[in-house]
Design a protein around this nucleic acid. Sequence first.
DNA 1: GGACCATACATCGGATCCGAGGTATAGCGA
DNA 2: TCGCTATACCTCGGATCCGATGTATGGTCC
Lengths: 177, 177
Amino acid sequence: MLKLAILGFLYDRPLHGYELRRHLAALTGHVRPISDGTLYPAIKRLESDGLLVRETEPGSAAAPRHTLHLTEAGRAALLDRLREPEPLDISDENRWFTLLAFLRHLADPAEQAAVLRRRLAFLAEPASFFYEGDRPVGAEEFADPFRRGLLLVARATTEAELAWLDTTLADLEDSPR
Amino acid sequence: MLKLAILGFLYDRPLHGYELRRHLAALTGHVRPISDGTLYPAIKRLESDGLLVRETEPGSAAAPRHTLHLTEAGRAALLDRLREPEPLDISDENRWFTLLAFLRHLADPAEQAAVLRRRLAFLAEPASFFYEGDRPVGAEEFADPFRRGLLLVARATTEAELAWLDTTLADLEDSPR
DNA sequence: GGACCATACATCGGATCCGAGGTATAGCGA
DNA sequence: TCGCTATACCTCGGATCCGATGTATGGTCC
């Protein structure tokens, strides 16, 4: 997830680590803050995989800043990841939101629509959190108010997203280009 | 998160590993499946921490089943975790949902309400995913339909949950005992 | 009788992540 | 001048997780 977010932000324009950190904090930090101990090793991994290069700026600031640029391989890696997301990128809401934040980088509306349809298929699957034997237990049956809330909130989320997916897919289908 | 879920399910009644696996699959497997390689080491950790004991059943099934029982320390550990959740348990939706699934085990309605209020405070904080400089960018401003959708879905979820929290907190406050 | 699947448990290597700590410089107010 | 905060980067140990793989037995279907 972190890898995806780093590639996504750098696709727009080069940033140095600290700026990247602030962008990441805005995107995912509210829910799940990322620490330096996560970010800097991740940058190093991407560098040694040849997806980005660091250029030392003898700039004004405190420590010498390393501006991070995506390489061609890095740009291609982002597009591949967006085009063919892993199953977890589709099912896990945190990852899916990260993917959505950068999906516009995929230039072809048909490819964008294909990704949205995978999410649609996932959300359309019947899923329950609790079972008695093999029978799914619906929200209304619970005496437990917390489990009932869990199901109600999950249902509201799913419905809001399905509605959005419907209209957006329709838009993408008559989009030109 | 896994630890919490294991303790939560075993609090109700003893289970053996395979049953536990199915319960976990129903609760979180849709979004994030757990593999054997995650579950069995987690059980071992809990065992060596003294939170559960394994009793070998010479039962009918294929391999000898190990029925897992919570110890007193295990029961106390679950209640502590529910009473004072870590920040990530509050902010990360996956973890929060897991916590909600077992919050009823906390016997005192006032303690349950205190946990819900922490979530309420978290959701009430103004948060945006994207900034231009220091100014948060609202959903309506985006030309990018995917980022707009991200914000719309997040907002719908938050509103549904806030509504549920309001009514549930009100119920808990006039609850007897 | 043989193929296949579900049950049931376990281990290992590799990847990733987090928290805590460390090293600097620059700028501002008391 | 002292301390604080922001900027900027880095490392290490420990925890956790995942995927692949292994080892059994019992039941079902053809």
